[in-house]
């Protein structure tokens, strides 16, 4: 008989650090929806989002020792997700997305979100990448412009301008 897997986040993290993959799988099950949502909004593509989400959890496993517990595990994962989504240099996913058949409406990745929220998800996905990144981080994730600017390597003024343009585009797209 196999040992029971803890459900407390701190216990799961501790067990995962000791190499317990079942504990890490439990952490994956708890957080995959939030991580995938963030990756989906940053990338605007289901295929890329799933690829980056997978990468996030692989990186998390390998970096577990660097998780100090100062912030919730979910917040640490989200930070990894932002880094992975914005620094995805491999471009394999983008190329794969071209190769694999794409049915545009379904690939927007927002089927589970009804009505106007779905329209917003699609409109966000259609934003230019830089504007989308600023919008997701500032308007959805709640980052300050200073944080966004630091992450994206732009000035705070640029971040504000991108957010203004993104919001304007979204209002027009959703009217």
């Amino acid at each position: 008989m196999s040992a029971a897997v803890a459900t407390n986040p701190a216990d799961l993290v501790a067990a995962a650090r000791r190499g317990d993959r079942r504990a890490f799988e439990a952490l994956y099950r708890q957080h995959v929806g939030a991580v995938n949502a963030l990756c989906l909004r940053l990338s605007g593509d289901v295929t890329i989002a799933e690829d980056v989400t997978q990468e996030v959890f692989v990186r998390a496993w390998r970096k577990l020792d660097s998780f100090r517990g100062d912030a919730p595990f979910g917040a640490w994962l989200r930070r990894l997700a932002v880094n992975a989504a914005l620094n995805d240099r491999r471009s394999h996913s983008r190329r794969l997305a071209r190769v694999v058949p794409i049915a545009a409406p379904e690939r927007a990745g927002v089927r589970r979100t009804p009505g106007a929220a779905m329209d917003l998800e699609r409109a966000v996905a259609a934003l230019p990448p830089k504007a989308r990144h600023v919008f997701v981080l500032a308007a959805i994730e709640g980052w300050t412009h200073a944080e966004v600017a630091r992450e994206l390597g732009v000035t705070e003024g640029t971040s504000k301008a991108q957010l203004y343009q993104a919001r304007k585009s979204l209002r027009e797209a959703l009217r």
């Binding site: 799988e25 994956y28 929806g33 995938n36 799933e50 692989v58 929220a117 308007a139």
Partner: peptide, 23 residues
């Protein structure tokens, strides 16, 4: 609308088997 967005969006497929293989 922004405030009403879902906190979670599950992947279309279970990513765990691929993740576990990479671990």
């Amino acid at each position: 609308l922004i405030n009403g967005l879902a906190d979670e969006v599950a992947p279309e497929r279970d990513l765990w088997p691929d993740i576990e293989a990479r671990l």
